[in-house]
C-alpha cells in the first residue's frame, strides 16, 4: 500500500514538471517551451493536473554565435501561464500550456555622462505562444518503466515583432510541430521516491526557422512522505542550422533562429495539502549560441486532482 501511494505521488510530481526554458536573445530573442510534464507516465482517465505559474528571465548578456558571452541591452521576459494536463483515456493525456500574459521589455539607455535618456525603454504585452500536446503511453499504465510518445503543436499566438526595432517578442511567429519520445523509470524505497527520465525530440519549424533536436534528462527525489519533491534537470537544444541566417531576414523577427544551449535546472515542489501545492524553479544555460546568458526563475501554484 505504501509503495502504491508512493507511486501515485510520483505520477503526480512528474505531472508537475513543466520545464520551461524560454530564452530570448535580444540578439536573438526566442521563446520556446519544453514540456516534460507527466514525463512518460500518463494521467489516469478523468484525472488532471493544473498549474498557474510565473516564469521570468532578465538578461544583460548573451551567448554569441561562437559561444562566448557578450553584453546586450537589458531585456526582461515574463510569462504568466496556465498549464493543464488531463487524462483523456488510460493511455492518452492531453496537455495545454497557455501563457495568458506575456511581457517582453527593453530597459532605458541612459548616458552615464549627461544623465539623458539615449533610448527610451519599450515593452509589449500580449498572450504568448501556446503549446498543445498529446502524449500516449506505449507501456502499460502503472509500469515502473514507462515509454511514451508525444506530439506537440506550438501555436504562434504571441507577438513576434514589437517595439521600434521589431525586436520585442512574446512569440517566435512560427508554427512548430515536435515529436518526442520519453523513457522514465521509478524506483526508491517506501520512505523516499526516486525517478529518472530521458527524452528526445525533433522539432519541425516553419517560416525559415531551423529545425531542432531537443533532449532532456531528469532526476527527482520525493521526501517528507512525498510532500516535497526535488528535481534536477538537464535540457538541451541543437539546431539543424537549416533555416535562414539572422542577417538574411529583412526584419528582426527571426531572433529565435539557430539558437542552441544546454541548461541545468532545479525545482522544488511542495504539497501544502493533498491537492494543492507550490513550486519554485531555477534554470541556467551553461553553454549556448545565440541565446541569453542569464538564469530563469519560476514560481507557481498547482492543483492536483489525484
Amino acid at each position: 500500500m505504501e509503495k502504491q501511494n508512493l507511486y501515485n505521488d510520483l505520477i503526480r510530481i512528474l505531472s508537475m514538471n513543466i520545464s520551461k526554458i524560454a530564452s530570448t536573445l535580444g540578439l536573438i530573442c526566442f521563446c520556446f517551451i519544453q514540456v516534460f510534464a507527466g514525463g512518460d507516465w500518463p494521467q489516469p482517465k478523468g484525472k488532471g493536473y493544473f498549474k498557474v505559474s510565473q516564469w521570468w528571465l532578465i538578461a544583460d548578456q548573451h551567448y554569441t554565435d561562437v559561444g562566448q558571452i557578450d553584453p546586450n541591452l537589458t531585456s526582461g521576459i515574463f510569462n504568466s501561464s496556465l498549464y493543464a494536463e488531463y487524462g483523456l483515456s488510460q493511455r492518452l493525456t492531453g496537455v495545454v500550456y497557455f501563457p495568458f500574459f506575456s511581457r517582453n521589455y527593453f530597459n532605458n539607455q541612459v548616458s552615464a555622462t549627461t544623465g539623458e535618456i539615449l533610448k527610451a525603454g519599450e515593452a509589449i504585452n500580449s498572450i504568448g505562444d501556446t503549446d498543445i500536446s498529446f502524449r500516449y503511453a506505449l507501456t502499460k499504465p502503472g509500469s515502473s518503466i514507462a515509454l511514451s510518445a508525444a506530439i506537440l503543436l506550438g501555436l504562434p499566438l504571441g507577438e513576434n515583432k514589437g517595439g521600434s526595432e521589431n525586436a520585442l517578442q512574446t512569440g517566435d511567429g512560427e508554427f512548430n510541430q515536435m515529436l518526442q519520445l520519453g523513457l522514465g523509470k521509478s524506483f526508491g524505497t517506501d520512505k523516499i521516491g526516486i525517478y529518472t527520465k530521458l527524452s528526445v525530440g525533433v522539432n519541425n519549424r516553419t517560416n525559415d526557422f531551423s529545425d531542432e533536436f531537443r533532449y532532456g534528462a531528469e532526476l527527482g527525489f520525493g521526501i517528507l512522505n512525498s510532500k516535497l519533491w526535488l528535481v534536477t534537470r538537464l535540457t538541451g537544444v541543437e539546431s539543424f542550422q537549416n533555416g535562414k541566417l539572422a542577417s538574411e531576414v529583412v526584419n528582426s523577427s527571426i531572433f529565435a533562429n539557430n539558437a542552441e544551449f544546454t541548461s541545468i535546472g532545479f525545482e522544488a515542489n511542495y504539497y501544502l495539502t493533498k491537492k494543492i501545492g507550490l513550486s519554485a524553479g531555477y534554470a541556467t544555460a551553461f553553454r549556448g549560441q545565440i541565446i541569453y546568458a542569464a538564469p530563469s526563475y519560476s514560481v507557481g501554484v498547482f492543483y492536483d486532482m489525484k
Binding site: 510565473q54 521570468w56 537589458t74 532605458n108 555622462t113 515593452a123 501554484v301
Partner: peptide
C-alpha cells in the same frame, strides 16, 4: 495562503523597465 495567492500578481506587475547606464564619456 492568502499571502501566497498575492504572490503571482505581484510578480506580474514587477516587470518594470529599468535603466542601463551607457558609459559614453
Amino acid at each position: 495562503m492568502t499571502k501566497l495567492y498575492w504572490t503571482l500578481p505581484l510578480l506580474m506587475v514587477s516587470a518594470c523597465i529599468g535603466d542601463d547606464l551607457v558609459y559614453d564619456e
